[in-house]
């Protein structure tokens, strides 16, 4: 036995064949996970792709297929994809929620227009997830959104999540809101601690 070069072509004929969208749609429902993953990649050029991917995301149990679906939704990045990901934030499935958060972090321009709505959602968990999205959202308004949270949100856990992040990304413009946050939650030791820490980091002490 030995080192040897591959004797067969790596590419099989079927892999090279152009598949039409109907075929790809059917493969998205295949019993074979690999076929579903490839269909989830290839479907992005088909009409109605976002809708089909979101449908499959909610029914898909294989994590590897879900990851590919999320990558394709991120690639599509249209309003329907963003809306579908937002709906995942309300899912009872913690994995799906976290996967949606990660996907939305990749869509700063698409998520930005709905961020204010997310940060004002009646469900505090959704507001916390929205702050989680801000953690890695590459957008100019991140600090301003966080300031609005610590200034206006009445839920201590939402504010605590936001103040942690402000300690990392905040600047002098956050100082006033951080001081105000301490005044709003005088009985919450964690808020006092986190706000002080954020201010210390911002001022560079």
């Amino acid at each position: 036995m030995a080192l040897k070069k591959s004797r067969k072509k790596n590419t099989t004929q079927s892999q090279n064949e152009k598949r039409d969208c109907n075929q790809i749609r059917n493969e998205l429902l295949s019993d074979d996970a690999s076929s579903r993953r490839w269909a989830a990649r290839d479907i992005v050029n088909c009409p109605g792709a976002t809708h089909m991917l979101l449908d499959q995301l909610n029914n898909e149990e294989e994590p590897s297929v879900r990851q590919v679906i999320l990558s394709s939704l991120t690639q599509l990045g249209d309003s329907e994809a963003v809306e579908g990901l937002v709906n995942c934030l309300r899912s009872e499935d913690a994995s799906l929620r976290n996967e949606a958060i990660e996907a939305m972090k990749q869509l700063p321009e698409e998520v930005a227009p709905i961020m204010a709505t997310l940060l004002n959602d009646p469900d505090p968990d959704v507001r916390i997830f929205a702050v989680n999205i801000l953690e890695s959202l590459c957008h100019d308004d991140v600090e301003q959104w966080l300031v609005s949270v610590i200034r206006d949100d009445e839920h201590v856990n939402v504010c605590a999540t936001a103040v942690d992040l402000l300690g990392e990304v905040g600047s002098e413009i956050s100082i006033e809101a951080l001081t105000g946050l301490k005044d709003r939650f005088t009985e919450e030791p964690y808020i006092q601690f986190a706000a002080d820490l954020a201010m210390k980091r911002i001022s560079g002490d």
């Binding site: 036995m1 030995a2 080192l3 040897k4 070069k5 591959s6």
Partner: peptide, 19 residues
């Protein structure tokens, strides 16, 4: 490739494709 030939006894029993 050199590591496989020099250090791996299994090269006597297995074919290896290196791409």
């Amino acid at each position: 490739a050199m590591y496989l030939l020099e250090e791996w006894e299994g090269i006597n029993d297995w074919d290896v494709e290196l791409i």
